[in-house]
Amino acid sequence: MFLALTALVDEPRHGYGIVQEVERLSGGRVQLKIGSLYGVLDRLAGDGLVELDREEVWRGRLRRYYRLTDDGARILEEEAARLAANAAAARSRLRARGLSTRPAGGPA
C-alpha cells in the first residue's frame, strides 16, 4: 500500500502503470499481481486516499488513471516519517555497536 501510494505522488497513473512504478520503486522486489493491485486500489479508494483522475482509451482499451488525494498524501507523509524514524533508530544502534551503515539507496 505504501509503494502504491508512492507510485502516485508525481503523477496520476493507470493500473499497469502503478504495477510498473511499484516494481521500479522497489528495485524489482515487489511485483504486484493485477488482482492484488485492484484489491489495494479498492481499499485506498474506499479510504479516500486515491481517486479517479480520468479515463483514456489506449490502443482500443480502457485505462483509468488514479491520483493521490490530499488525505492520501498526508497518510503517506506520516507513514514515511514513521519508517524514517525506525530506520534512523536502527542506524543509530548499529553505529553504537561500531558497525558502519550505508547511506540510504546505496549498493546492496
Partner: peptide, 13 residues
C-alpha cells in the same frame, strides 16, 4: 465496473 480496465492491465502486462 472493473472488467475492461483489468483486462487492459492484464494484456499490457
Amino acid at each position: 465496473e472493473r472488467e475492461e480496465e483489468m483486462v487492459a492491465a492484464f494484456l499490457e502486462m
